[in-house]
Design a protein around this nucleic acid. Sequence first.
RNA 1: GUGGCUGUAGCUCAGCUGGAUAGAGCAUCAGAUUGUGGCUCUGAGGGUCGGGGGUUCGAAUCCCCUCAGCCACCCCA
Length: 452
Amino acid sequence: MSHPETSSSAARITPRTLKGFRDYPPEIMIPRERLIDTARRVYRSFGFAPIDTPALEYLDVLTGKGSDETDKQMYRFVDHGGREVGMRFDLTVPLARFAAQHIQELGTPFKRYHIATVWRGENTQRGRYREFMQCDFDTIGVESVTADIETALVIFELLHAIGMPRFTLRLNNRMVLNGLLQRLDLADRASAVLRSLDKLGKLRADDVAKELESVVGLSDAQARDVVGLAALDGDNDAILRDLEHRTEGSEVGQTGVARLREIVAAFEAATGEPGQLRIDPSIARGLDYYTGPIYETFLDELPAIGSICSGGRYDDLAGLFTRQRLPGIGASLGLDRLLAAQEELGLIERVRTPTPILIAFFAADRYHDYLRLARSLRRAGIGSELFPEPRKLGAQLKYADKQGFRAVLILGEDEFQAGTCRIKDLKVGSQEVVHVGPDAGQLVDHLRDLVA
RNA sequence: GUGGCUGUAGCUCAGCUGGAUAGAGCAUCAGAUUGUGGCUCUGAGGGUCGGGGGUUCGAAUCCCCUCAGCCACCCCA
């Protein structure tokens, strides 16, 4: 109307989102933010401090480390000043740059968490988008096994805090794999072998063995030996003994097994839940840069969705940027996967409001009294929305129902006169009349139980 | 990036081998119901049939291109 030139349908632009990019409406954003808050709280409780870095970096900063694959997936452009620029495709490369640039002031150990959006122009799939969020935590500058142990403990606490205590943290050590490959005389083909090995979760052992022979060129015996790792069964002690045997004569391998042993013992001592940490020699993780312990976390109720928290140790984070050696270890929560899992397990309550209480705007000339009441409730820590117009009560209740409010406060002239308030519990359907009291104190006491 | 499947109202879908004004359920809005949501009834709004081009007297229907989604592969910080 005010823009006649855009009112014809020919001039109108179709509203749409780019492939792999998403809108997040309130009912999606509310559980998402809750999860992020929980991760933040757990990270901070262990002493990890927040950092942020720019979404855009000089292209050479990002491409330096990247494989051809990540190069292909990176969003890049030339800015108005002629600079070659890329969008970060993970939070580890920015961390490496950040650490190389600031480690003098930061000192070590440096523990940081970083929850931020990253971009990859890869093909989309269910649960894989071109814009997504990573929730990393890392410890820089600690070679000792204590950092490996703490990483496992953070994952443990995180999953419990999220309310998903039924999970298995699977642990392996690249040193063990390297030791084994050394013994098999395959050190030169390590990354190809590991890539195939990593498929053991998805493919049958026979197929992986076949791939190792045909693609990587292993002998029958070598392939069987590698795949045999996955067949290892029994408790952690039994597996560790077996691994010790298999890596005999390899110093790296033996060191790796010893480190696993320490992690297992400390995890048990700290949590009292030894069953939730399992040595799994078939966990390889695709990445070349892992050099020590590696972690993957699977939900017992939904293992098929894949690892929801993974990470590992790397000996040289920032070698591209500085001569100073910066060893580190860290992991990343798979936010989207975890949300998908919670959704599938029916753990996500669908609400469109972060606020539990709606105050019906009922008596038109009591507006100021409603404002005062709302303020008292908010000050007492009870989120309260005042309906903006004195519409029909039925319409306001309908709105409250649709948005997912926990309760509606109904006060008309009668209630104001009597100093009372009706609390309508939308979930149960019951209703009670309570005294408001000074500063709404009595009302607050009632509501606290309700919204707890 | 490669291959396959799919795309009709906000959502789930129907719509025959090409035929006239494209339908249903749910959802939305209004009313029944000016101090009480979910249930019921009545009514209304809502469609470039993903988009563009082609074949045809005639296309939601057939063909090509394109965009998007799903699945598999590739890969996986």
